[in-house]
Design a protein around this nucleic acid. Structure first.
Length: 898
RNA sequence: GGGCGCUUAGCUCAGUUGGUUAGAGCGUCUGGUUUACACCCAGAAGGUCAGAGGUUCGACUCCUCUAGCGCCCACCA
């Protein structure tokens, strides 16, 4: 027997276990069904489940369950990401704080990596169980991890292939250096924070040197001027144009001497500052480029001023060993004393911050590995539709989206994507940390070897660096489909790996990449870049970007604010997984952030309870009728109400299925909510309490409701399914609902519903106690037959003592009245009805309608409207007008009667 | 500096390709133990769809501009 209320906790874990053990999650590579694949965005191997995970797990699970039920071979491949920098820095912090190891690097490379592995294993376990808690129907037999052996193989293969194609190169460039974490970062791993800084303007070259006005330079980072090699002006600069090509000696305070050459370059904005830029090639990418362009005339070779530790280099006279701030102050003080400082002004400065450490990023010159995104290469064995046989990585990335081989939802993010690619520069892929895929490169003196296995001979020394974590994540959709046994065979080429992996051939390209818009660049773009190159296939057909979940007041969820931050596990404990799932998808749209708070989840808990009780009611009836198996509907004997609910069900099925195919999950959730609560419970079940109960229809509609809701709220629907007589297989494996071919009449019951609602309204307006039954007179006019068939329902649901039902008749005096669809309703209430109030009500209604009629008449008398609007719209307006006129007429009569 | 999004009932949000007298949930108000459900039922109040123009027979929906809020990108030193 079912409990009075649905208690999620009692069932969820068991249900999940049953699903998992049944093997439905496991995709069959030999199936001839069309495949539908989602690669789960691998959560970092560090964290615990937060709402963002809850949301993406729900959305993807809905997609997967829907397709699985529609007969696709659905594969949802789960996994975790080693999250290189994030994980390493967490473990280092833990070792320091918890184990008191001052310098964790002293454990050595292997020692530290072992510590990290231990940590990862533990937290992977946590993540796995939390993914299960969410009900995610993913294929655990194929679980991946970005540090798996076979993934490592793929990483190395791709690295080698790119190296051989000249797309990966090693070079000295100004890179983003995270001083706190002691590693380089990619351009998009740098965040900008606006901070009030000071813009210092000072004399760079004296009047004596220029032979005219002194040359001033404005900068927010004066300390870097210690490493300047040039002074750049705009080519049209008339003040200093004559100095271009000349080299000057400059002595800074405290003895540091430099040589600077004056150059002219269009990049210089003559409007900003003094119109003169001090060029510091080793501490700014722009300056580096300026140097490169004018290398031939610039006399001094650049020098590094700031070291990797964030302190001034020993080679800088007068400032050696100072922190950046100290050096700046010392420099400025010196300028002041020398009378060279002209101006100090506050201005808003964009400070570079590491997205990982949140600490400053210093641009520094370093020898690093890069992916060249602008180099043309020959495209071979590609299944992509590309316009040319030689392209750059950038161009491929643009083209596959432009020609919609990859579709992005919502579409507007295409623009963002293109804009990002337009600005994309070579990707720095090497990192100075130990946790990750080590660069597959060995050195022997001047020789460089790139390969899958280390070269013979112990003089070869392996590159110490590891690869950017996104390098391996970028291969996620396909590297996880490579057969580990095949990957272990080092004699095979990358193409062989792909060809000999059945999973890859069956399930790639994946169907949908569902992820947050915040990692469109980090991950989605990189997957497109790397996968199109490595496999000749797109990684996915559709990108579905969800928004971020925010607190009630719109700020980011953060554990530091526990009063507004929602812990999904708490919510599951309190309201059940289904309630949580529904709350993160219903009424939301892709790409837009949504606010979530406890009452919302509570509301959906109420919904699951509503479903539970409606089911309990239906199942009770089935039991009463001793129904042991799925009953057949007798289509010859359907009541108006049966037709109505079956018609509504068809509409709902159509809407839900189409909606899910088009990934409009939020709307589908809403539609199902409405159908269950408003149509099924409020009307059909209430109507079923009358004479014309139809157990077969009740069964059928409930069955379909369970199927339709299952992708969204899998647990409660599965539990209820288990109570359905005649259903021996689990709901998860059922066929998704399809509409029957029959056309149903929904108008009759719609009319009955309108009449009942109107009577209830009249009752309420006149303050008639719900318990009191009242006499009612109805003139059905053309709808009299329908009303006669539904009279029993009207009597019961409108609580009528005595119903007088006629085709037409005299208007009743002293009665409250309303008109719907030409049906006249009278509630005669001797002494009870307030005549004056009723008069006022009618007058108001009539005046409302008159305005409405005026509008309609104006519309219909407009020739242009009648000529141009489609016929059904015109006809619709006409019948609206007729009805409104009829209603006014009848109401006016009634008013006169009062 | 460029780009994008949002602005719809007190709050949180839906609104498919332009055709409703603009919807939902929560909250509010009035009443309620009626063959499941008080995690419930019945009814109600509440909106010049941010503002101004334009296109159209017709605009919440398309275009232009404006304002407020938010986000992303960018080498103005």
């Amino acid at each position: 027997m079912m409990d009075k209320a649905y208690e999620a906790k009692k069932y969820e874990d068991d249900i999940y276990k049953k699903w998992e053990e049944s093997g439905v999650f496991t995709a069959d590579v030999n199936s001839d069904k069309e495949s539908f694949t989602i690669s789960m965005p691998p959560p970092n191997a560090t964290g615990v489940l937060h709402l963002g995970h809850a949301a993406f797990l729900t959305i993807e699970d809905i997609m997967i369950r829907h397709r699985r039920m529609k007969g696709f071979e659905a594969l949802w491949l789960p996994g975790t990401d080693h999250a290189a920098i994030a994980t390493e820095s967490v473990v280092i912090k833990n070792l320091k704080n918890e184990q008191g190891i001052k310098n964790p690097r002293s454990l050595g490379r292997e020692g530290l990596v072992d510590e990290i592995k231990k940590y990862v294993e533990k937290s992977q376990g946590t993540i796995r169980s939390q993914i299960r808690k969410m009900g995610a129907s993913c294929d655990w037999s194929r679980e991946g991890y970005t540090m798996d052996e076979s993934l490592n193989r793929c990483v190395n293969e791709v690295f080698k292939k790119m190296y051989d194609d000249g797309l990966i190169y090693r070079g000295e460039r100004v890179v983003n250096w995270d001083v706190a974490l002691q590693t380089t970062l990619a351009d998009d791993e740098v965040e900008y924070e606006e901070k009030e800084g000071t813009l210092y303007t000072f004399e760079y070259l004296s009047a004596e040197q220029t032979g005219g006005d002194p040359m001033y330079v404005a900068t927010s980072r004066p300390e870097t001027k210690l490493g300047d090699t040039a002074l750049a002006i705009h080519p049209d600069d008339t003040r200093f144009g004559h100095l271009v090509g000349k080299t000057f000696d400059v002595e800074w305070p405290h003895g540091r001497k430099i040589k600077v050459t004056v150059i002219a370059d269009r990049e210089v904005d003559p409007e900003f500052g003094t119109g003169v830029v001090g060029v510091t090639p080793f501490h700014s990418k722009v300056d580096y480029d300026l140097w490169q362009r004018h290398k031939d005339i610039i006399q001094s070779y650049p020098i590094q001023v700031i070291g990797e530790d964030g302190f001034i280099m020993e080679t800088i006279d007068g400032y050696a060993g100072l922190s950046v701030e100290e050096a700046r102050n010392k420099f400025i003080e010196g300028l002041k004393n020398d009378g060279r400082l002209k101006l100090e002004e506050k201005y808003a400065q964009q400070l570079s911050i590491s997205y990982r450490s949140k600490m400053p990023v210093e641009p520094l010159p370093k020898l690093q590995w890069f992916i060249d995104v602008n180099k043309r290469f020959k495209i071979e064995n590609s299944k992509l539709k590309l316009s040319k046989s030689e392209m750059t990585l950038k161009e491929i990335m643009q083209e596959v989206v432009k020609n919609h081989q990859i579709r992005i939802i919502p579409e507007r993010f295409e623009k963002t994507y293109f804009h990002w690619i337009d600005n994309l520069q070579d990707w720095c892929i090497s990192r100075q940390i130990w946790w990750g895929h080590q660069v597959p490169v060995w050195y022997k003196d001047e020789e460089v070897y790139v390969g899958i296995e280390s070269p013979k001979g112990n003089e070869w020394i392996r590159d110490e660096d590891t690869l950017d974590t996104w390098f391996s994540s970028a291969l996620w959709t396909w590297s996880t489909l490579i057969d580990p046994k095949v990957a272990a065979d080092t004699s095979l080429s990358l193409n062989d790996l792909l060809e000999k992996s059945p999973d890859f051939n069956k399930f790639h390209p994946t169907s949908v990449m569902e992820t947050g818009y915040d990692i469109l660049f980090f991950w989605v773009a990189r997957m497109i870049l790397m996968t199109t190159y490595a496999t000749g296939e797109i990684p996915f057909e559709t990108v579905y970007l969800h928004g971020l979940i925010r607190t009630r007041d719109g700020s980011k969820m953060s554990k530091s604010k526990p009063e507004t931050c929602i812990d999904p596990l708490d919510m599951i404990d309190k309201y059940g997984t289904d309630a949580l799932r529904m709350s993160v998808v219903t009424g939301s749209t892709p790409g837009n952030d949504m606010r979530l708070y406890e009452e919302k989840i509570q509301g959906y808990r109420n919904f699951t309870n509503k479903l539970w009780n409606a089911s309990r009611f239906v199942l009770g009836i089935l039991e009463e009728k001793s129904i042991k198996d799925e009953p057949k509907i007798d289509y010859e004997k359907l009541s108006d109400a049966d037709e109505w609910i079956l018609g509504k069900l068809n509409d709902t099925i159509q809407f839900a299925d189409k909606g899910l195919m088009e990934y409009r999950i939020g709307e589908v959730g809403q539609a199902l909510y409405d159908f269950l609560w408003n149509d099924f419970c409020d009307w059909y079940l209430e109507l079923s309490k009358g004479e014309k109960q139809n157990p077969a229809v009740l069964y059928y509609v409930l069955k379909n409701i369970l199927i339709l809701l299952h992708p969204i709220i899998p647990f409660s629907t599965e539990v209820i399914w288990g109570e359905m007589p005649g259903q021996n297989e689990m709901l998860i494996g059922q066929k998704y609902s399809e509409i029957g071919g029959k056309k149903y009449n929904i108008d009759s019951t719609s009319l009955i519903i309108d009449v009942i609602t109107k009577i209830r309204h009249l009752r309420s307006e006149n303050k008639i106690e719900p318990i009191q039954k009242i006499p009612v007179t109805i003139y059905g006019n053309k709808s009299i037959n329908i009303l006669e068939r539904g009279s029993e329902d009207i009597i019961r649901l409108a609580r009528i003592s005595d119903l007088t039902l006629k085709g037409s008749g005299e208007k009743l005096a002293n009665a409250a009245t309303d008109i719907v669809n030409g049906i006249e309703i009278f509630v005669p209430l001797d002494g009870l009805v307030d005549t004056e109030k009723e008069k006022a009500r009618l007058e108001k209604e009539i005046s409302n309608l008159s305005g409405y009629i005026k509008g309609l008449e104006a519309k219909l008398s407009n020739d242009n409207f009648v000529k141009n609007a489609p016929k059904e719209v015109v006809d619709g307006e006409k019948s609206k007008l007729d009805e409104a006129k009829d209603k006014v007429e009848k109401m006016t009569e009634q008013l006169n009667n009062l």
